[in-house]
Design a protein around this nucleic acid. Structure first.
Lengths: 194, 194, 194, 194
DNA sequence: AAGTAATCGAGACGGTACGTCTCGTCTTTAG
DNA sequence: CTAAAGACGAGACGTACCGTCTCGATTACTT
């Protein structure tokens, strides 16, 4: 017997309105920057002003939803059940992350920026973007440690912070995030290993 | 005959107006964030709107001037002519940096944030804040390398990026920047050394 | 065989909904003026928005129904079959009218006000409020003329307009509508009579 | 020595902006009714939204200024130093009043309407429109009384209220305000006189 | 008993207007 | 020429209503 979500009273929300808002918001911000007016977004989405405010209370929250739902931000989680050196696994993973981030570097910068003046936004960004990526890298590093690829006395969380930090540092300074940089980061993180 | 700056025609600029603007701008941004209106700043400074625009063309430029002139952001440059392990020198330096940053963490976050939507601002921030600090750390790391404290094949610039990146990462995520973290960063950067 | 309204198909209308709407609409307009939102009315009546629109197409129509059904606006028609001076009859009648109007002066002002921007509303207000009262006064004045209490060459319709006009004038200017004013009006209308 | 208004500090208000606002507001309300949006008025006047709000806080106040300044509402005050019957003087005056009112009957209706929900507006309307006209008629009636054209025991203020009331009554009911009605009103007011 | 149809509460929808806010420029008098 | 003051055009903001529409549920009459 399938569990079914109870239908709330009243006219149900139009899912297409939400989709159109996310789609157009993302498009307009990519084209014109974060400064696009809400009026422009709702006009492009063919939706009323209140409909937007029924769903999100700020432009930032709408964009956050849009980014993670529509933008191709999802990166395959490394499969640690496979054999082979974790150094290569992490290099591949970081290159893929960099690849996706390069596509929406402006948007990400805007989000990190926005998070600075909006604690709620920062929390969401942390939960949905920062922490998942941090945990993946920490997992790979722990596995590498268990396999003897990294010294036992090092702290995987610290290494992950340095890797992601360097990534943020270059992102926020608008410096290139290329494959070589990804590889160099991982090389240095695994240095001194067997 | 003494060389004298040529006196421009008309009423001379009031230096106190500039000082008041910088002082009040910094204070208000610390209290209320970057979003304070220009009207609030000129009102606090007791200055007319045009007077501000006569001197700076944006709020960001005013604040940059204010930051480097009024905020206590200067850290002593490590003296590499002295003997002793560079690991300790770097640890001391990073602790001092963290100490100063903690005092104005909000302000710094606001500046990094603002730099994301303002390339000119980012360039100035890079030239006057990021790069000088990066060069100091790179210099210390190079010296440590010359002294055999760090392996020859490592890239000081990359290590500096990881250290500063981890620092930014925690700053922007509002995670603590304490002495232990400063020490741990340097420890890991020097790990595996003789 | 009793005549019976044909029962329409479907669920019958809930009479209590209409009553609640009229009652609450009148109450809220008395308290807050004509500007009360429809949302406030339906909320107070515990009724859905569509239910109101099923019965009335504007707030004004709802209120007109409410006014004549619920507000105590009915005044006894003078009995001209009785002997005695018509001057006294009219004085009594006008005093009674003033008495009722004083109770709902705000409401009446609101209705006259609303009628100015709504011709349909004005027509209904005229048919159901203005004209009946005008006819009563004209009838009394004609009877007085027949009895020689008023000169034959005067126009009862004009006198009625002057009496009711003076009444409106004071009502709309928020000047007092007391018994003395009612008496003075009738005195002047009858002045110079035998 | 001519008294001169002290020039306030700052950029002076642009008188043309005020004029354009009054002119266009009056024109649009005459064309489309009181419901015209503020946006339409400022657009027609070529003026910013704030400029309107710098001068008036509501559409009604703007229109009140506009009406008495731009609309041809001024009626010549009867010259009581001239000889001749006051009955004729008052008839001429009332005909002229009716003539002017007919041109802006809609606007006047709107103002009386607006005054019902806005005590401040009502006060201004009373001071600038109602009372001056009332005083003129009372003056003429008193003079007529002194000349024996009207009985001594009648109350000029009451007669004025009946005349103006009948005028309002017909105005608000959208009944014709023609010359005959003006004459009939005055005739009845002077009835029974020598 | 099943089907049909209008009603009900709830609330989302597109749309319009509102009054406030901020921006950077402009226009005045005074120094 | 600069200062203080403040008006200006421009336009975004979030809120409030409007009258319509869309649900599931309810309540009668008609088969």
């Amino acid at each position: 017997m399938t569990q079914e979500t109870t239908q709330a009273a009243g006219r149900p929300r139009n899912a297409e309105a939400s989709d159109a808002l996310k789609r157009e918001a993302l498009r307009l911000v990519r084209e014109q920057g974060y400064g696009v007016s809400i009026a422009a977004i709702i006009k492009a989405a063919g939706v009323s002003r209140q409909t937007l405010y029924n769903r999100w209370s700020t432009k930032a929250e709408l964009l956050l939803d849009a980014l993670f739902e529509l933008a191709d931000m999802q990166v395959a989680i490394p499969d640690l059940s496979q054999p082979g050196p974790r150094r290569a696994v992490l290099t591949t993973y970081m290159r893929e992350v960099f690849h996706h981030v390069r596509k929406d570097a402006d948007l990400l910068r805007i989000f990190i920026s926005q998070a600075q003046s909006d604690p709620a936004f920062r929390a969401v960004l942390y939960d949905r973007f920062v922490e998942p990526r941090d945990l993946i890298v920490v997992d790979v590093l722990r596995d590498a440690q268990a396999r003897g690829e990294i010294a036992q006395d090092r702290d995987p969380a610290l290494i992950s912070a340095m890797i992601h930090g360097a990534f943020w540092y270059r992102l926020l300074l608008d410096l290139p995030l290329d494959d070589d940089f990804a590889a160099a980061l991982v090389e240095d993180a695994f240095r001194g290993a067997a």
